[in-house]
Simulated scan of single mutants.
Amino acid sequence: MHHPAEHHNLGKGIACGIGAGALWGLVFLAPELIRNFTPLEMAGGRYVLYGLFAAAMVAPRWRILSHTVTLRTWWTLNWLSFAGNTAYYILLSSAVKNGGITSTTLVIGFLPVLVTLVGSRDKGALPFRQLLPSILLCLTGAGCIGWQALHTHVQTVARAPLFGLLCAVAALGSWTLYAVGNSRALVRQRHFSAHDWNLLTGLATGAQNSVLLPLALILDTTPHSMGQWRNFALVSAAVALLASLGGNALWNRMNQLLPLTLVGQMILFETLFSLCYGFLWEQRLPTGAEALAFGCVVLGVLLCVHAHRKPTTQAVGRSIA
């Protein structure tokens, strides 16, 4: 016997996580599409538009929302916006531009391990031993991608591999801080819907980047053609709409449905989709090591889901006995 409502939430939460990963994976392609612009400009353009889109969507409901948003809420939104959006995207863009898509994806692939480890310390979380198989599979998958990155032509396109690696590691730390902080903030702020929290995050992020973008434009002395500016605007708008508005909304909804230990595993889908987009961009099929990595990632998520379902079933069995 099962708790149908709980299993329904589990399935719905996983579906939201997969959707968020599919949309977030696009951000790994964006730096390749507009390589003539700096990471500061990429972050500024994306997030100023994210803020404008969010402002337009939140305006009809602002009178109601304004009564529930306190100074403490704005403080939380601002540091989460900086860690998970502004700083993360600047670091990620720098990592992709200097180290390449694959090596960056490898480092970011360790996010699930870090978030799951932190989540395992939460009250009522699954014991670490039950999460260990999925974590080991995640590490195996990341190792396969890393081995492939070091032994193929992909690494040769890197401009500054060491600097790219450092940026990727810093991005990993920044987004881990965001993932854990955002998940716990949503638990405390249950009076906000996932959609409203996303729009408020957009307002905070847009405000930060309205200062960053003019500075980035002043610092960049590279001349750009009208065509390059058009591409910059289109890519920034697409990433703002799809990854920031769409992806963040799905991610926040997932956070309300799943425990942090399972939230960590859902980040793997961003890695999977970013690799798929990378293959399409490079016009090639995955190698044996990359295919093995895919298998490890999928199996790891399935094991983690199974571990989270077992306690529910066992608890029901004990209550019937």
Rank of each mutant, 00 (worst) to 15 (best):
A5P: 03
I14T: 06
C16I: 13
G17D: 11
G21A: 09
A22G: 07
V27S: 07
F28N: 09
A30E: 08
L40E: 05
M42C: 11
R46K: 07
A54I: 14
R61E: 12
R61K: 12
W62V: 12
T76K: 09
N78M: 08
W79D: 00
W79M: 05
L80H: 02
T86M: 05
A87F: 11
Y89W: 08
I90S: 01
S94V: 03
K97H: 09
I101H: 01
I108V: 15
P112D: 00
V113W: 00
T116P: 06
R121G: 11
D122M: 15
F128C: 12
Q130Y: 06
Q130N: 13
G141T: 07
W147I: 15
L150G: 15
L150T: 11
T156W: 07
L162W: 10
C167T: 07
L172S: 03
W175C: 07
R184V: 09
Q189A: 13
Q189I: 13
F192G: 01
D196H: 10
D196N: 13
L203P: 08
Q208G: 09
N209E: 09
L212S: 08
L217D: 01
F232C: 07
V239E: 04
S244N: 08
S244A: 14
G246P: 10
G247V: 08
L250Q: 03
Q256K: 10
M266C: 12
E270D: 04
L272R: 04
C276Q: 04
F279A: 01
E282I: 12
R284G: 09
G288F: 15
A289T: 11
A293M: 07
A293G: 11
G295Q: 10
V298C: 13
V305R: 02
T313F: 10
A315M: 10
V316S: 05
V316L: 10
G317E: 14
